[in-house]
Structures are given as C-alpha cells and as structure tokens.
Nucleic acid binder design. Structure first.
Lengths: 195, 195
DNA sequence: GCTACGATGTGTACAGCGCTCACATTAGGC
DNA sequence: GCCTAATGTGAGCGCTGTACACATCGTAGC
C-alpha cells in the first residue's frame, strides 16, 4: 500500500499475494483461502496472481512453506537444542501453541496432501523430521531413534490436531500446556528407564 | 437404483444421500464432497437434499458420524478388549489402517472442526475418548490414566495423519504396520517400567 | 532516444459450487 | 375423496477456479 499502489505493474505481486493470504488466514481462522480474495486483498484483478502461481494449490503450497519456516523458528525459540524431557516438553508445547495460534495456517500446512511435486514442501517436511530426530537422539539416548522420533512427532502432531479439531478442550492455554507436558512426560518415562 | 428410481418422491433420500456421499468419498480419495455431486449421484435435483440436511455441513457431519461408527467397529474387530501392549498395538494399527483405507472419510471425520452444535459428533468423540481410556487403564495399570490416554490417542491419531498427509511413507502397508507397532511399543516401554 | 519484445496486469467468460425461493407433485390423515 | 404437509424441481444469485484475448509497461538492443 505504502509504495505506489496505483501503478499498473504492482512491483512484487508474488510477495503481496503471500502477505494477503497470511492476513486472510489470520483474520478468519476457518477461511478457505480463495485465490480471488487474495487478489482483492492485494488490490489486483482476480487473474493477476496466475502470473506468479500456476494455480490455487501453488499459492497454498507457498504459504505452507512459509508456515514451516515460522514453525521451525518457534520451536527453536522454545529451545534451541533440547536434550532433556523438560526441553522436549517445552518444544512440544510450542508446537501445539503454534497450531492453536495459527489454526488456519496449520491446517494449510498439514491438511492439504503433500504433493510429491512440491519440492518446497517435501524439503520442509524432511527438515522437521530431521529436527525431531535430533531432539530424540539427545533426549532419549539409547532408544531406537527411528521408531521413537516417529512416535514423538506423531504424539505432538496428534496433540496439536486433537486440540485444533475440538476433540480436546483448547479454551484454556495453560490447561493445554499442562496436558501436552503431561503427555510428553508420560511418554518419556519409558525410554529413560529402559536404557 | 433398484427400487423405483423414477418416482417423484424418492422414498428414502436421506439414506440415499449418505450412500452417495460415501461412494464419492471412496471413489475420489481427495474429493471435496459437493452437495450437488451427491444429489446427482442420488439421481435427484441439486436442491432436494436440503429437505433432509440443513446445509452441506449437516450432510458432512452425518457422514462423519457414520464413519465414527465404522472406525469403532474396526477397532473392536482388531481386539475387543485390549489389555496388553500387543493388543494395543493391534488396535493402533487398525486405526491407522482405517485412515489409509478411507482417507477422504477420515479427513471428513477429523478435519472439519467439530462443531459443538452437532450432538452426534460430540457423542462420537466422547465415545472414542472413553474407549481409549478403557484400553489405557487395562494396558497401563498404575499410570496416570488421563495423561496417558490423551498421549495414546494423540500418538495413534498423529501417526494416522502423518501417513495420510505423506509426511511418513504409506506406500507399503506392512511397513506402516511395523512402524506403528514400533511406535506404540516404544511408548509403552516407559510406563510399564514406571509403575 | 527510439523501438520492439517479454513480462506483468485487466476484462470477459464459462462451468461448478452452496444456497434461497417460488412452484409442482404426492402421501396420508380426516 | 379432499386437504395439508412433506418432499422434489427449476430458476436464479453470488461466489469460486481458471482459460483466453487484450492492455500496459520496463528494458535491452540499436
């Protein structure tokens, strides 16, 4: 808006579309993210985004990729290199917190099937997977790393979605954090005793 | 189709819509389940379903409720009253198997937010929750039942979605079963040692 | 400094969607 | 046998994604 919004050529419509999409997702938590709405918000004709995104899916994938980056940052912020159960729990809480703070974005990231064609998204998935493995190897030394990191990711991811979908009450942030914490601790007890 | 498809009044359009919806979901795993498509499949005008469902959401909720019933049956079939880790693992595998066998239905069941208004769906959720608690109390005696049943459900649910969304490879059914099995076992090790 | 071209944005159009409303048809109680 | 309420039809509105022809403009080559 600030810079020459009235020119025929926008300047950086791609970025503007992504920004508009993010705003729409944040404003209406259950938005369907229509391409036309994005175009309107960007102050541009309905078909202009097609110069920058092959179709709606491409836009959505780009938004999802951004989301992965932000999720990663949040987890890192929760704890840069978790190595204890408490650290892990903090990261888990941050993961669920992110899902509840950005429900529409989180859905976009995980609900729309990960097209093997979208290299961006595959890379992002691999990054998360690697990140989790690293945590698990430090926090659960001696345990089977592959099975356990799968289990940990699934546990946290499942917690996020069950809260997000209203299967677990998410109205009280503290209660959610406590619940996630408890679940992770319950899970950990095992392998720390097993080694 | 078999019975008097050419009459003005259908006879049992509600059931026919549900059946049509299920067929569409099974045929196109990534279907969006349009009301009009359901009507077409049921051999009826586009607006006829509105006599039996308030809106698209109501139809979807009804389909989801059916799905909950079938999921419950499958879990029961996997093991009627699981009490060991192996039993629990078998149930977990059945859960993930159901998700992968009926991806579109599973998405309908869990992705669309659970409107507190839909008593059917809330009841179904509560039923699953209770079922899981029962299992956990038998399989993990002495552990904190609430935290653990949350953890177990989240673990299994997360495994289902990570496979469904392509975050974990789901191409080989045996490999999936093994992975789920391993995750549940990893999880169990803990609390059985803790007590 | 002009010109031609490629990149970018516009406008129109089409089919499909959810949903509303006026109307047609029919089943079942009196 | 009629009347009413339930059920199905059809036209129509505004939304969607997307294809297409056209308009505008930055810039590279002369």
């Amino acid at each position: 808006m600030s810079k020459a919004a009235d020119r025929y050529h926008h300047g950086d419509l791609r970025a503007a579309c992504l920004r508009a999409a993010r705003e729409l997702l944040e404003e209406d938590g259950s938005a369907a993210l229509s391409l036309r709405a994005v175009a309107r918000r960007a102050g541009v004709s309905a078909t202009a985004p097609y110069r920058h995104f092959a179709d709606r899916d491409a836009l959505v994938s780009a938004v999802a990729a951004e989301g992965y980056g932000e999720l990663g940052a949040k987890l890192n912020e929760a704890h840069p290199e978790p190595s204890t159960t408490e650290d892990l729990a903090a990261v888990a809480v941050a993961y669920v917190r992110f899902a509840l703070d950005h429900p529409a974005l989180f859905r976009v990231m995980f609900v729309e099937p990960c097209d093997p064609g979208s290299a961006e998204r595959v890379a992002a998935t691999a990054a998360i997977s690697g990140y989790v493995s690293g945590i698990v190897e430090r926090a659960f030394p001696g345990a089977e790393p592959e099975a356990l990191s799968t289990a940990v990711w699934a546990l946290v991811h499942g917690l996020a979605f069950l809260h997000l979908d209203g299967k677990l009450d998410a109205s009280d942030a503290d209660a959610v954090a406590t619940r996630v914490h408890a679940a992770v601790r319950a899970m950990h007890t095992a392998s720390s005793l097993a080694e």
